[in-house]
Simulated assay, not measured.
Amino acid sequence: MILEGTILRGPSFDAVEGRVVVEDDRIVAIEEDEVYSDDIVLPAFVNAHTHVGDSIAKEAGEGLSLEELVAPPDGLKHRLLREADRSELVAAMERSLDYMEQSGTGAFVEFREGGVEGVRALDDALEGSRLESVVLGRESVDVLEVADGFGASGANDADFSSERRATRRADKLFGIHAGEVDTTDINPALDLDPDFLVHLVQAEPLHLNRVEDSGMPVAVCPRSNLVTDVGLPPVEELIERTTVALGTDNVFLNSPSMFREMEFTAKLYDLTAHEVLAMATGNGAELAGLDCGVLEVGRPARLTVLDGNSDNLAGAQNPVRAVVRRAGTSDVKRVVLPES
Rank of each mutant, 00 (worst) to 15 (best):
D74R: 14
V20M: 10
L69G: 01
R86I: 00
G75C: 06
N209I: 02
L80W: 11
A107H: 11
T281V: 07
T281Y: 09
A152M: 10
L69A: 05
D142E: 15
T105I: 15
D142C: 03
Y269L: 08
P188L: 11
G106E: 10
D229A: 14
A84Y: 14
V20T: 04
S330Y: 14
A219F: 10
I176V: 14
V90W: 02
R130M: 02
S310E: 02
L190V: 12
R334M: 09
P205H: 10
R223C: 00
G308S: 03
E23G: 02
V70G: 01
F150M: 09
H274R: 15
P205W: 12
R169A: 06
D229C: 05
F196D: 03
V201N: 10
E127H: 12
P205I: 08
F108R: 04
I40K: 04
I2F: 01
A147S: 15
A219Q: 03
E101N: 05
E204M: 13
A158Q: 06
D185K: 09
D159C: 05
Y36V: 04
L76V: 08
I239D: 03
T105L: 04
L190H: 10
G247S: 13
L232R: 13
L76A: 08
V70W: 05
R169N: 07
V41Y: 08
